[in-house]
Amino acid sequence: METKPFAVVSAVPPYGHVICSEKWRNSSLVQSLKGGGVKILFENELGVADFNLPNKSSILYVSECDIIAGNSYKRKLVRYRNASSSFQELVLVEKTRLSEQYFQAVQTFVVFDLGLSLLPVSGQSEASQFISQIVHGEGRDNPFRRRSSCRLFDPLVLTLIQQVPGVGKVKALALLQNFSSIHQLCNATPTKLEAIVGQVGAQQIHSFFHKHTTAGT
C-alpha cells in the first residue's frame, strides 16, 4: 500500500500526455493544454508536484496567491525539492503586477537556496504554452531519447542568465555553451567566466550570484 504513491509520483506519461494533479481539473491551464492537443491524465497521488511531463520532468506551480499569502509556499517548495524522485524538478512562478515586488526573494529562495530551476510566467495561459512546447517538442524530436531535459530547459536557463545586469542574449548564449546549469554558472570562478564574457562581465556575473550568500553572513 505504501508503494503506490511512490509509483504514481514516479510515473512518466506517454508522449503527447501530461499527468496532472486532480486539483487542476477545472483550471484554465488544463483547458488551454487540452485546446493545444495535449492529453491529460488526472491523478490524486502526484505528491507535491502539479504536473509530470514525458521528458522525465515535473513541475510545481507557485501562483500569485501563494506568494502574497505568506511563506507557506516555501514549505511546499522544500518538500518538492526533498521528494524522492528521478524527475528533473522545475518551478513555475507567477510574476504579475501584484507578485512582482516579492519575485526576487522567491527567485533567490528557489534558485540559490534550493538549487531548483525556475521559470517566471505571467499566468496559467503562458504556463500552458510552455508545457505544450515541451510535450510536443519532445515528441517531434526523438520519443526514445531519455536525457533531453538540458536542451528543453535551455530557454529557461537563458531567461535566468539574462537577469544578470550587463548580460544580454549573446553573452547568455555563450555562457550556456560552457555551463549546462545555474549551479555550474554560480560556482564558476571569475577566471573561467572572464574567458567567455570578458573581465567586466565576469565581475558582474560573479557578484550577482555571490552577493546573496555574502549578504547573509
Score class of each variant (00 low, 15 high):
residue 56 K to A: 10
residue 67 I to K: 02
residue 85 S to T: 14
residue 70 G to A: 14
residue 69 A to H: 13
residue 74 K to E: 11
residue 74 K to F: 04
residue 100 E to K: 13
residue 62 V to G: 02
residue 91 V to H: 07
residue 67 I to G: 05
residue 64 E to D: 07
residue 96 T to E: 09
residue 56 K to P: 00
residue 58 S to N: 14
residue 85 S to Y: 02
residue 98 L to W: 05
residue 83 A to S: 14
residue 85 S to R: 10
residue 92 L to Q: 00
residue 98 L to A: 12
residue 73 Y to G: 09
residue 84 S to R: 08
residue 91 V to R: 10
residue 73 Y to N: 13
residue 81 R to W: 08
residue 100 E to M: 01
residue 66 D to W: 00
residue 85 S to D: 12
residue 78 V to F: 15
residue 75 R to H: 08
residue 68 I to L: 14
residue 80 Y to A: 11
residue 61 Y to W: 12
residue 64 E to P: 06
residue 55 N to W: 01
residue 55 N to Q: 04
residue 92 L to R: 04
residue 63 S to L: 12
residue 92 L to F: 14
residue 68 I to S: 03
residue 90 L to D: 00
residue 97 R to Y: 05
residue 69 A to F: 06
residue 65 C to S: 01
residue 70 G to I: 14
residue 62 V to I: 12
residue 74 K to Y: 06
residue 59 I to V: 11
residue 84 S to N: 06
residue 58 S to Q: 02
residue 78 V to K: 13
residue 77 L to H: 00
residue 88 Q to M: 03
residue 75 R to P: 01
residue 87 F to L: 15
residue 66 D to L: 01
residue 73 Y to W: 07
residue 65 C to W: 01
residue 64 E to W: 11
residue 98 L to M: 10
residue 66 D to K: 11
residue 60 L to V: 13
residue 68 I to M: 09
residue 62 V to Q: 03
residue 80 Y to D: 10
residue 70 G to Q: 14
residue 86 S to G: 14
residue 95 K to E: 12
residue 58 S to L: 01
residue 68 I to V: 13
residue 72 S to T: 14
residue 88 Q to G: 10
residue 94 E to Y: 01
residue 77 L to C: 05
residue 69 A to E: 14
residue 62 V to A: 05
residue 55 N to T: 04
residue 94 E to W: 10
residue 90 L to Y: 00
residue 92 L to Y: 01
residue 77 L to T: 02
residue 66 D to R: 02
residue 96 T to N: 03
residue 79 R to L: 06
residue 63 S to C: 07
residue 87 F to Y: 11
residue 80 Y to R: 11
residue 96 T to I: 09
residue 96 T to M: 06
residue 91 V to E: 10
residue 64 E to V: 08
residue 58 S to P: 02
residue 60 L to W: 06
residue 63 S to P: 12
residue 85 S to F: 03
residue 88 Q to Y: 02
residue 90 L to T: 07
residue 77 L to Y: 05
residue 59 I to F: 13
residue 100 E to C: 03
residue 59 I to W: 04
residue 89 E to K: 13
residue 98 L to K: 15
residue 61 Y to K: 06
residue 89 E to L: 11
residue 77 L to M: 14
residue 74 K to C: 02
residue 95 K to M: 11
residue 85 S to H: 09
residue 65 C to L: 05
residue 82 N to M: 07
residue 86 S to N: 15
residue 56 K to N: 03
residue 84 S to E: 10
residue 71 N to H: 12
residue 56 K to S: 09
residue 96 T to H: 05
residue 64 E to F: 00
residue 75 R to G: 12
residue 78 V to M: 15
residue 92 L to S: 05
residue 80 Y to C: 10
residue 79 R to N: 07
residue 93 V to N: 05
residue 67 I to L: 09
residue 87 F to E: 14
residue 97 R to Q: 08
residue 99 S to C: 00
residue 57 S to N: 00
residue 71 N to D: 15
residue 77 L to K: 02
residue 64 E to C: 03
residue 71 N to I: 11
residue 93 V to E: 04
residue 74 K to V: 06
residue 65 C to Y: 09
residue 96 T to V: 07
residue 72 S to D: 15
residue 76 K to H: 06
residue 65 C to Q: 01
residue 81 R to V: 04
residue 63 S to W: 09
residue 81 R to L: 06
residue 73 Y to I: 08
residue 95 K to V: 04
residue 89 E to D: 03
residue 90 L to E: 02
